[in-house]
Structure formats: C-alpha cells, structure tokens
C-alpha cells in the first residue's frame, strides 16, 4: 500500500507557505485588483454619463452642430499643445540627461538632478501664472517675427497675437512641465548603459561623444521613447496651466501664434464645468471620455515600446 502511494505523494502535498508570505501575497494582489476596480469605475462613470450626450440630437449639444463638431477642435487643441511640448522637451531632456550622466562633474551632476526633479514639484497653477505673467509677454516679439517671416507655414499663419496667450506659449509651458519626467527616465536608462559596451567603444578609440553614440544612445533609445510618451500623457491631461495661459475657444485652427486658438479638452472642462447644466454636463464628460481614451492609448503605446526593448537589448 505504501509503495503505490509513495510516488504520487510529493506532488499532491501543497507547498508549505509561511503566514508572512500569505499576507504579503494577499495585500499585493488586493492592491493590484483595487487599481483595476478604480480604473473600471472611472471608465464606467465616464461612459454612463457620456451616453446622454452621445444619443442627444445635434442641436441640443453646445454649438448646435453635434458632439463630433464640438469635440473635434478640442482634440486638435489638445494634440497641438501636447505634441509641441513633446518636440521642444524631448531633445532638451535627452541633452540634460546626457550631460548629467556623462559630462558633468559628479557634484554638479547630483545637484542638477535634484534641480530638474524639483521642476516636477512645482504646482501647475504656478506654471500657469508664470506662463501668463512672464512667458506670454516675453514671447510677443517672437510671435510677431514668426508671423512676418514664417507666415507661409500653416502653424505660423498670422495675424500674430498681441497678448502672447497662444498655443505656442502653452506648448512651451507644457514643455517645461514635462521636462523632469523625460529627463529623469532618460537619465536612468543612460546611466544603465553597460560599462562593458562603453569600454568596448572607448577601447576602439572613440571620443566621449562617439562612445555615447555607439553604446549609450542605441541602448537608451526605447527608454527615451517611453519617457517621452509618459510626458506626452501628462501634457495631454494638463488642465490648470493651459486654462490660465490660453485664450482659447475658437474653432479648429492649426496656427500656433494667433489669438484664435482651439481650447484643450481638459482646460475646456475646467472652465465650463462650474456653469454647465443638463446636457452640457454630459457633453463635457463625453469629451473627458475621449481624453481618457487618448491618454490610455498613449500609455499603452509607451508600455509596448518598453516591452519591445527586451527583444533587442542583447540581454545575454
């Protein structure tokens, strides 16, 4: 009897689990599920509240031309500001990250790291007032110059704004706000570029810049992309700074420097929500749903890029 039972016994016996392990596994699992529940709850709320606007007749929607016509300029405005911010911030952030990791003397590097991280700690309303009070007036001459000399490009079509409260200024404010995210992640991946490959480049007679090009940038490329996507996510959702700086509300225009700017989804919600009633509220929530989907898409893209990196990083 014992002989027939013996071979199967070890597999049937459950692994011994200590209480500490069980408690930790339980709390970890609960935290993960909680996040999913919160996310699902937000999504359910957005969808539920947006449905009345989705099914409402076109003339009931603010503007009178239906939901798509209402949201489209907002999407354009959101993307314009965020992409401009990304285009300005990414090269700057990569430069900062390279300087901090490979050029700056150690003490300066550490200090600079803190200062850049501090940018992330400034409340966005402060950025808004800075943009309104300092940056917008300072950029007025540039607006005029851009309209005069680059006016043939749709993005710089005149007439130039006299206040500076334009999509261009918003883009720059957002760029400063997302700089710390992108540079922090870039710094991290650059500093992890394997010494093995950096030494390989140096031993071939590479200068420091050539070493960075051969061994650091290829290694850190996908990390920089992921950081940029996270920054883009923040720029898409930024509310206060945009609401304060931008004189928006005009229809869909591509120009970055004139007084007629489309608003962004988030700032439009913040500005209109206090006075909205009935179907207006549902419309604003529907626009919020669109922002939710866009941001989710950007984050998934970032995640996909990061995961893809595992395949060609040469982990062996």
């Amino acid at each position: 009897m014992t002989a027939t039972k013996a071979p199967s016994e070890p597999t049937q016996q459950p692994a011994v689990r200590r209480p500490g392990d069980r408690i930790f596994a339980g709390t970890a699992k609960a935290s993960g599920i909680l996040i999913l529940l919160v996310l699902a709850g937000v999504a359910a709320f957005l969808i539920g509240e947006a449905i009345p606007a989705l099914v409402a007749p076109a003339e009931d929607i603010p503007g009178g031309e239906g939901l798509a016509a209402y949201i489209a300029p907002l999407i354009l405005g959101t993307l314009l500001g965020a992409v401009l911010a990304l285009l300005v911030a990414t090269p700057l952030a990569v430069g900062i990250a390279l300087y901090v990791t490979y050029y700056a003397p150690r003490r300066i590097a550490a200090a600079m790291g803190y200062v850049i991280d501090l940018l992330a700690a400034i409340p966005s309303v402060v950025y808004g007032f800075w943009g309104l009070a300092v940056l917008a007036p300072a950029l007025r001459p540039f607006h005029q110059w851009a309209a005069d000399t680059l006016g043939f490009i749709p993005f710089f079509a005149g007439p130039a704004s006299t206040t500076g409260r334009t999509m261009f200024t918003v883009g720059l404010v957002l760029a400063v706000m997302i700089l710390p995210i992108i540079s922090a992640i870039s710094r991290e991946v650059f500093s992890q570029a394997p010494a093995l490959h950096r030494e390989a480049a140096l031993a071939l007679g590479a200068t420091r810049w050539e070493m960075i090009r051969m061994a650091v940038l290829p290694y850190g490329k996908s990390g920089v992309i992921a950081g940029a996507m996270l920054g883009l996510g923040r720029a898409l959702g930024e509310t206060m700074a945009v609401a304060i700086v931008l004189s928006g509300g005009a229809g869909a225009t591509l120009t970055l420097i004139s007084n007629s700017n489309p608003s962004t989804i988030a700032s439009n919600i913040a500005l209109r929500f206090p006075e909205a009633t009935g179907i207006d509220v549902n419309t604003l929530i529907a626009s919020g749903l669109v922002l939710f989907v866009i941001t989710l898409g950007v984050n998934m893209l970032a995640r996909w890029v990061v995961n893809r990196r595992a395949d060609f990083s040469g982990a062996n």
């Binding site: 093995l196 390989a200 480049a201 031993a203 071939l204 007679g205 051969m214 290829p218 290694y219």
Partner: peptide, 21 residues
C-alpha cells in the same frame, strides 16, 4: 588618450560586441 587607444587595441574578459549592431 583617444589616439593611444586607436593604436593599442583591447579585448576584454567578457565578450562585448555591440548588441544593437
């Protein structure tokens, strides 16, 4: 030192071909 290293090559303990090349 960059010129020195172009004249004096080096092979390391762990093989280190550039993984992205």
């Amino acid at each position: 030192p960059v010129d020195v290293r172009r004249q004096i090559g080096m092979v390391f303990q762990r093989p280190n071909p550039f993984p992205t090349m």
